[in-house]
Amino acid sequence: MIYPEYIQPVSLTDLWGKFPQDKKIYFLAGGTDLFNYLRDGLIDASSSCFVDISLLKQLDGITEESENIRIGALTTFSTISESGLLKKYCPDLVAAAKVLGTPQIANRATIGGNIGNASPAGDALPSLAAHFAKAEVANSKGSRLLNISDVFAGPKKTTLANGEIITAVVIPKIKVKAGFTVVGTFKKIGGRKSHIIAKASVAVFAVVKNKSVDYISVALGAVGPKIIEVRNISKILSGKKVSPELTEKCKDEIRKIASPIDDFRSTAEYRQEVICPLFEQALNEIVKD
């Protein structure tokens, strides 16, 4: 077996000095996607370098800042699913983390990897899009914040240059009116219950008081080349009470904006058919009397 070049930097500063100039850089964290690409020949080992970032402990963990919640790129989905901070501010992301992969995968898979892998079916991504999260991207010269939707160039493609690394994701904290609460959930559909990659998925994040909606944000996964934010839903529901009529209007918006394709996992027709009920299920779960 041909292995890629491998380096294991011990700090971020150490990282930049070590990059081989002529190789395609793959950052290795939990390896849950990377190892399968290597085995399936999707990575040309001889012209690649795996940069193992697992020792960069400053990239691991969830912290509260005055305006944001910051999740280090190395934070695993097991950690996310148990985070009290995220349960409070991003319940939809916690819901996504709970259904991502298996316990074995969730112990290894990282949020940075989920973003970097750029799959339209990535479980954390609809939620991050619904929160208008930003990815912190670093290179040897410094770092910048990118809107999460601007990280993706298309299925499995990012806008990042070779050797640029996602160091964290930054989620703005929502302001909550007195008497209202933060709610959110994530729904996906696949071939079975456990360990599925979504054929279609939806994240719904809202600030509500029973059925009254102060704020709502919805994003769809696996029904387009990238994650889709359904911005018009906030226009339909904000400041209103959820009703069957308004829910139908939201579903019309989703039908208009979803652009699924046929692939090895499902068909465009099926995805288009299930995305609205999936949204309705999510909405009914979090907005109720």
Binding site: G31, N36, D52, G101, T102, I105, H195
Partner: peptide, 27 residues
């Protein structure tokens, strides 16, 4: 399966279960 699907290769590392088939020994 050797692709992180079936769990036959599960081991406990520092108190957590992982699929050893997609775990680089360097870590």
């Amino acid at each position: 399966c050797e692709q992180g699907e079936c769990g036959s290769c599960t081991v406990i590392i520092d108190g957590k279960i992982v699929n050893s088939c997609i775990f680089p020994v360097g870590q």
